[in-house]
Amino acid sequence: MQTVMAFVVGALYAAGLYLMMRRSIFKLIIGLALLSHGSNLFLFLMGYLTRGGPPITPPEAVRPVAPFADPLPQALILTAIVIGFGVQAFAVVLIRRAHETLGTDDLDKMQSTDVD
């Protein structure tokens, strides 16, 4: 299954980046979301997929019963998801404001700050 999921991760990265390269700002934001899904899943795979119990110590035991999933990547992903959510929420609103203020959703029309 690890191998299958590796391809899923690849697909998420590819789709996310492809959408980010479109000129519509809406696609940009969707692309960002896919990219962040991709990197979260990538991190998850780095802990190696383990079917079986979650890393929770059952009552009356002092440690989780093996086999259990690698808890560390889970914690990292949790942090990454939440950070990603914060950043995305900001980005969504930023893009909306940009569209409102600049009057376009075409990224190629936003080059006044680069070109003299």
Binding site: I25, L28, V87, F90, A91, L94, I95, R97, A98, T101, L102, L107, M110, Q111, S112, T113, D114
Partner: peptide, 11 residues
């Protein structure tokens, strides 16, 4: 205006 434009690329 310029800030928003710059911010999109920056972000």
């Amino acid at each position: 205006k310029a800030q928003l434009e710059g911010a999109i690329k920056y972000v």
